[in-house]
Computed example of a mutant assay.
Amino acid sequence: MNNLHVLEKINIPQFREDIISWFQMEQRDLPWRKDQDPYKVWVSEIMLQQTRVDTVIPYFNRFMEWFPSLQSLADADEEKVLKAWEGLGYYSRVKNLQSAVREVAQEYNGIVPDTLEEISKLKGVGPYTAGAILSIAYGRPEPAVDGNVMRVLSRILLIEEDIAKPKTRKIFEEAVRRLIDDNHTSAFNQALMELGAMICTPGVPACLLCPVRDHCEAYAEGVQSQLPVKNLKKRSRDVPIAAAVITNSRQEILIRKRPAKGLLADLWEFPNYEDHASLTTKRESFRQQFQEQIHVIPELGEHLISIEHIFSHLVWKMDVYLGTAEGITEDMLISQQMKWVAETEVEHYAFPVSHQKIWKAYLEKK
């Protein structure tokens, strides 16, 4: 494998001892480390994808209170599962998790598979998640290569391949296979991740605190801050959106369920539309599109809040208004996946973060 000739310079047994002993002394006290239950490891690893540890901790604890076992998650209503995930984002993660958990319950008698071939068949379980579960829960010598691991090993082994390219992951997986301690796979893989999170951080790493500094080729050459190489840049586009909190004479709130596929699938939201009408105001754009769908013209009042919500590939630029509407029939609501709910019931539905902000602003305005 490219660049792995540096491995020949490393005292691998000493490297293993240094990083594992550091991890055993310095590891953070995290709730998913209390035991090596495959279900808990699985849930934590899905939550930790693209999400900070500090953010995940309370979500993990609540999730385990609501769904303490694999079977309880398999049996749970999807609305409750989405509510438990509300605010974590990337909701397809939990939808895939529940789908895969149901498969494990049905096809594997509720026992998470312990082979790479079987676990990789589960929905939403990619190479990293598979490696994490197998190594941490089952002690299998499988690599679990995430961004932290790639950053650590790019410095230790002076790997200058672009980590934004999918094919580069194979280099790091091979490196882990050759470095991993077969007798302490859980500690070894977690140690690499922990080192990347705490010491070998992006930008300027804390090399003087690093337990494997003496093994690091980038540190020896003084280029640690230049690694890893990551050149892929995604362009995001701005999406202007007009939204409204619509009430009726019974003081009910109009909410809408998003489609089952695509961004924020199956979450609830307040009525909103992309503003394509360059010759009208956002208010008029909303009124026109609402009328086209519901056949009722809403009354829009004052501006409630402006919100900018950033996704990886787009930015919602939302202007939100207060509004009222009457005369909406049940057929109109059903056809548009909408419903009226009492103000006290809104909190029972799972909303994306941007719409949680809308609701908070509405409550503060009252």
Results as ranks from 00 to 15, higher is better:
residue 218 A to H: 01
residue 328 I to K: 07
residue 200 C to K: 09
residue 364 E to G: 04
residue 340 W to R: 10
residue 57 I to Q: 08
residue 324 T to E: 15
residue 270 F to C: 03
residue 140 R to Q: 15
residue 130 A to S: 15
residue 37 D to S: 12
residue 267 L to V: 04
residue 334 I to T: 14
residue 324 T to N: 15
residue 186 S to M: 12
residue 349 Y to G: 04
residue 166 P to E: 11
residue 319 D to I: 11
residue 248 N to Y: 09
residue 247 T to W: 00
residue 113 P to S: 05
residue 180 I to Y: 01
residue 206 A to R: 15
residue 52 R to Q: 15
residue 192 L to Q: 09
residue 358 I to H: 09
residue 345 E to V: 02
residue 3 N to A: 10
residue 134 L to F: 10
residue 327 G to P: 01
residue 34 K to T: 10
residue 308 E to H: 10
residue 209 L to E: 15
residue 166 P to G: 08
residue 354 S to V: 07
residue 247 T to D: 00
residue 43 V to F: 00
residue 170 K to I: 09
residue 80 K to D: 10
residue 243 A to D: 01
residue 19 I to R: 03
residue 27 Q to N: 14
residue 226 Q to C: 09
residue 310 I to N: 13
residue 337 Q to P: 04
residue 17 E to Y: 10
residue 67 F to I: 02
residue 352 P to W: 02
residue 203 G to Q: 08
residue 121 K to C: 11
residue 231 N to L: 07
residue 356 Q to F: 02
residue 334 I to E: 14
residue 246 I to V: 04
residue 41 V to C: 09
residue 125 V to F: 09
residue 258 R to C: 06
residue 316 W to Q: 12
residue 11 N to I: 00
residue 287 R to S: 12
residue 235 R to S: 10
residue 20 I to A: 12
residue 41 V to N: 03
residue 102 R to G: 07
residue 158 L to E: 03
residue 107 E to P: 01
residue 115 T to S: 15
residue 163 I to G: 05
residue 103 E to F: 03
residue 169 R to N: 11
residue 31 P to R: 07
residue 175 A to P: 01
residue 293 Q to Y: 09
residue 103 E to I: 14
residue 97 L to F: 01
residue 151 R to L: 04
residue 154 S to F: 02
residue 277 A to W: 11
residue 38 P to D: 05
residue 1 M to Y: 07
residue 335 S to A: 13
residue 307 I to K: 08
residue 99 S to Y: 00
residue 328 I to P: 07
residue 67 F to K: 03
residue 339 K to D: 03
residue 208 L to W: 13
residue 309 H to F: 10
residue 159 I to N: 02
residue 94 V to R: 01
residue 254 L to V: 08
residue 285 S to N: 13
residue 162 D to L: 04
residue 354 S to P: 02
residue 58 P to I: 06
residue 361 A to K: 11
residue 102 R to D: 02
residue 255 I to N: 00
residue 186 S to N: 14
residue 206 A to N: 15
residue 339 K to H: 07
residue 54 D to M: 13
residue 204 V to M: 13
residue 142 E to P: 02
residue 254 L to N: 05
residue 231 N to V: 01
residue 110 G to Q: 08
residue 67 F to N: 06
residue 172 F to Q: 08
residue 285 S to C: 13
residue 333 L to G: 09
residue 105 A to D: 03
residue 155 R to T: 11
residue 139 G to A: 09
residue 303 H to E: 14
residue 30 L to E: 08
residue 177 R to H: 06
residue 198 M to D: 07
residue 164 A to L: 00
residue 123 K to L: 04
